[in-house]
């Protein structure tokens, strides 16, 4: 990692004064930092493959025998892998920040580019772009798996199941929304990581945000609290974007649910940006 950065410093130090193209340059710098180490590439590969692997496992485990009616949301089932893929997204987002702090490279970065909002924006934009690509691959692979496997497991069009494919509107919304969901999870984790800086604490906090609320929901019997959890927590509300059946019984509509996650991500990003701007590196 250090070797790649050292050469980069020479390139970025001189033109830092040219303010006009600073975001482009910051993006280029961040991109160089990312692509010259192997970690991010492996994690992006992990996002795609783990998402697909868990989706395929969940699809493979569900059957609809001929004599039963199956109240299964086949699209949501096909997108199960997002539940695990989001954890890898969180690691990627956290490491993108904390690696710079743990090696002290953040000081070099900020010396080269003193315009902190630009550095912050460049990191966030790059992260979102990469997660959108890896997430799209993972989500598309999951949809493809559902499309290929589910009919042979009894979920056929003849029995009233919509095909899990991009020709069906709600599936497009669920699949596209899942990619956006992963990007928002990345932003939320990124904000947390900037605030916390330490990779271990940041990843713990990010995982807690992702997984604690669904577990709490499983145990809370009080309907008022169930309703609140379903409407206002990042993962439960956000993942309603995957629902294509029983929309009327949802506590929040799919797009509104994704907006709730966007609010969480936005809050984390704003807090992170403010802290990043005014805190000593």
């Amino acid at each position: 990692m250090k070797a790649g950065v050292q050469t980069q410093l020479d390139v970025t130090l001189a033109p830092a004064a040219l303010r006009g193209a600073s975001l482009t340059r910051a993006l280029h710098a961040e991109w160089t930092k990312l692509r010259t180490v192997s970690g991010p590439a492996w994690l992006l590969l992990g996002v795609a493959t783990l998402t697909i692997a868990v989706s395929v496992a969940a699809i493979g485990a569900n059957h609809c025998p001929l004599n039963l009616t199956c109240p299964v949301d086949t699209t949501k089932l096909s997108l199960t892998g997002v539940q695990l893929g989001q954890a890898v997204v969180a690691i990627l987002a956290v490491l993108m920040v904390s690696n710079e702090y743990s090696t002290g490279m953040i000081r070099a970065t900020l010396a080269a580019m003193p315009n902190r909002p630009v550095v912050f924006a460049a990191k966030a934009i790059l992260l979102v772009g990469l997660v959108l690509i890896a997430g799209a691959v993972g989500v598309f692979g999951s949809v493809l798996a559902g499309h290929l496997i589910l009919p042979s497991h009894g979920f056929t069009a003849a029995r009233g199941f919509h095909p899990v494919w991009l020709s069906y509107g709600p599936t497009v919304r669920a699949a596209g929304g899942s990619v956006l969901y992963l990007a928002l999870v990345a932003l939320m984790s990124f904000g947390v990581a900037v605030i916390v800086r330490d990779s271990a604490v940041a990843v713990g906090a990010a995982l807690a945000l992702l997984y604690v609320f669904p577990i709490a929901l499983a145990f809370v019997g009080n309907v008022h609290w169930q309703h609140r959890l379903e409407r206002w927590t990042p993962t439960i509300a956000g993942l309603t974007i995957q629902d294509t059946t029983g929309l009327k019984s949802l506590a929040i509509t799919p797009w509104a649910g994704l907006c709730v996650l966007a609010l969480w991500a936005g809050a984390a990003i704003v807090a992170g940006a403010v802290v990043f701007r005014f805190r000593d590196a």
């Binding site: 969940a58 089932l77 954890a87 969180a90 956290v94 490491l95 990843v203 995982l207 669904p214 577990i215």
Partner: peptide, 26 residues
Amino acid sequence: RSAIAITAAVLLVVMPFLLTVLNVVP
């Protein structure tokens, strides 16, 4: 790497439980 170790440890315990209680798997 702490981030990866932590995620692995948490997911080993939490993920199977979550997949089960959410009835994601039969």
